[in-house]
Design a protein around this nucleic acid. Sequence first.
DNA 1: ACTTTAATTTAGTCTTGACTAAATTAAAGT
DNA 2: ACTTTAATTTAGTCAAGACTAAATTAAAGT
Lengths: 222, 222
Amino acid sequence: MLSQSVEDYLKIIYKLENGGESATKVTTSLIAERMAVTAASATNMIKKLAEMNLLEYAPYRGVELTQTGKKIALETIRHHRLIELYLSEALGYPWDAVDAEAERLEHAISEEFEERIDKALGYPTVGAHGEPIPNKEGHIEEQIYPRLSDIEMGRRAVIRRVSDRDPEMLRYMDDMGLQLGTTIQVCDKAPFSGPIKLLVEADAEHLLGLEVAHNIFVDPLE
Amino acid sequence: MLSQSVEDYLKIIYKLENGGESATKVTTSLIAERMAVTAASATNMIKKLAEMNLLEYAPYRGVELTQTGKKIALETIRHHRLIELYLSEALGYPWDAVDAEAERLEHAISEEFEERIDKALGYPTVGAHGEPIPNKEGHIEEQIYPRLSDIEMGRRAVIRRVSDRDPEMLRYMDDMGLQLGTTIQVCDKAPFSGPIKLLVEADAEHLLGLEVAHNIFVDPLE
DNA sequence: ACTTTAATTTAGTCTTGACTAAATTAAAGT
DNA sequence: ACTTTAATTTAGTCAAGACTAAATTAAAGT
């Protein structure tokens, strides 16, 4: 059994490897920042993980998960996303609250528990914020959607995924009726990275700051 | 936030104080045995808990929870029993499996989670094995039921509580149709602590060893 | 190529909660 | 009352995973 800490590091490294657009190696300071520890602590753990063959480590150069490391990261991510969805669907949690709760629960559940909520949810493939859920074998279907901030004027699109990094932003989106599956239309884009004017469900109009629009991923319609 | 370990110690000490029939002080070795640690480790932790004013400690004499300690123990027990019941009711866990899963989850859930499952379960007062569930204020309604092993011949009774200490025994009970609410009748008691012949739901007959009968608590009918 | 800066690593410390081995205390038996 | 035994405590270690401060390395600028 791996420690909670090891699982968290692997999960975060996986996300850094796959989340970012660039293909650079994941650095110590990035890991430290996401784990909210000092760089020295991160270095320590990285060395330990390398020792355990969970990642390749070139001092000063960064880090790359091995197959084994990736597998464990994906198991943890699967737990996390299944729990999030369960909290949302079965217990009525708002989508801004599921991450924090799942963060602790993901390390405490058994395979049995995983299977039972997976079944209760009908074997879902997409999480509470639209993230793909890895399957039991550790396979993940990474969907690439354009950001709402990059959609051209006049275009309609369906919200498919949002970033779950900032709960407050999630609450803000929710307040404006922006949820998974919501159809929006880009009415107007102010120049110089200005706000976007949005028509939500052909109904309400909202001005959306670029930072928010940057964290919403959509499926453009025809 | 208290550590998982501290919560476990308090929980176990509470159960030792209240579970046993005798009113003796709880000893270091009892605690050590239940926590599956050495006596030296238990002594260490006891001193720490005394330092934190969670219990009164007289060296060589044993231990007694303070009000604060009791409160925390009961919160933990509440978590545990609510989770057990939720696993059983909402996720279909068999009653022999809920304890192990709840053991880990009880330390990972938030008050929010507690409230939501409490509500989903309809604010239950009795757990998956018939244990009373402490309320949010830390009040517990300890019901005293006689053991099935002490019921006189011929008498009918309803099963109200079982010990959850041994999962295998729970499975065995289940196999014989012995569940909470099951009505049984003591048909025959062999002498010299021999087995008990039982009529289950006026239907099936079973021979029950004394150890099992000792771990079943019943409500005798008129 | 040299210097400055920023990132990274090393060295040493701390806390938590376990352990073993040795010492001490209390209880029980004669 | 003395001795034996069983329980308990003390003393000293260990591993995990964090920290700070100091040293090192790589990258960037002149």
